[in-house]
Amino acid sequence: MDIATSRNGLRALRGFFGLLVVFLYAPILILAIFSFNDGVLPTFPLKGFTLRWYEQFLSNPELLEALRTSARVAAVSSILAVSLGVLAAIVMVRRRFRGKAAASAFLLSPLVIPYVVFGIALLILFFAVDTFLQSTFGLELGLGWRAVVIGHVVVSMPFTILVLVPRLERINVALEEAARDLGASGLRTFRSITFPLIMPAIVSALVIAFTLSFDEFAIASFLASTDTTYPLYLFSQLRFPTRLPQMLAVSVVVIFLSILVVLLAEIGRRVAERRLAVEPSTAIGGSGA
């Protein structure tokens, strides 16, 4: 009998699933519970219900500024990453050229480079570039949120490619040829045919790239300079025990918003999918956040 359908096998699978759920969500639950606890120390027994920590973080300008910086970095970097990812995916799927496998490996390599190493490398690179620019043109780019954006684009682009490629592969080339045949230029074909048809994957890719950037710590820590992002700020505040409950509160809000965004994106993706009714697909990365 198949292990997945036998009685004991099923029991084991259910147990395993239960454990998985507990380890995934118990920490989040704990976080949520202590964010409402009327006490500085995150220890049981609970002391009582309060919204104090939420009020505190909402009136903490430094924290709000860090959230804004992260949102900006995540928005810009995810749009850039998906734009570049779309171009790369189209080339990988639609073109035949020598060294395609090598190009593919090259595009996806940031997946396996440790972020810390990559952060240092970018720091050194930016420093070198800036030295050069300053000495020859008197310009200075400097570090800061734009530098973080560049770092995040590099690390999130492979994910967007991985989401977009299978979607593109499922679009019959004949559809694009038909548009060309009916008089559409290359750009028009992309706008009228390819883009609407890969829209669900673009949404998924945006969500992935956004969340990846929003909570990325290592690269930002090297490049952010004074533009403190949300994870950097959070980490810096852990030194102060009295700030901890506030950090829990903001984390709960961020998690809740993330789940909401992913949920909406997934619903949108399904609606789009049904409208197109290209054979219903399994969620490609829609749950990647």
Binding site: A174, L175, E177, A178, R180, D181, L182, S185, P196, A277
Partner: peptide, 18 residues
Amino acid sequence: PNQREVNMVFQQYALFPH
């Protein structure tokens, strides 16, 4: 192809699903 005055009917029709 977009500048040729011929039009094609494709094997699997290739109708735009959206």
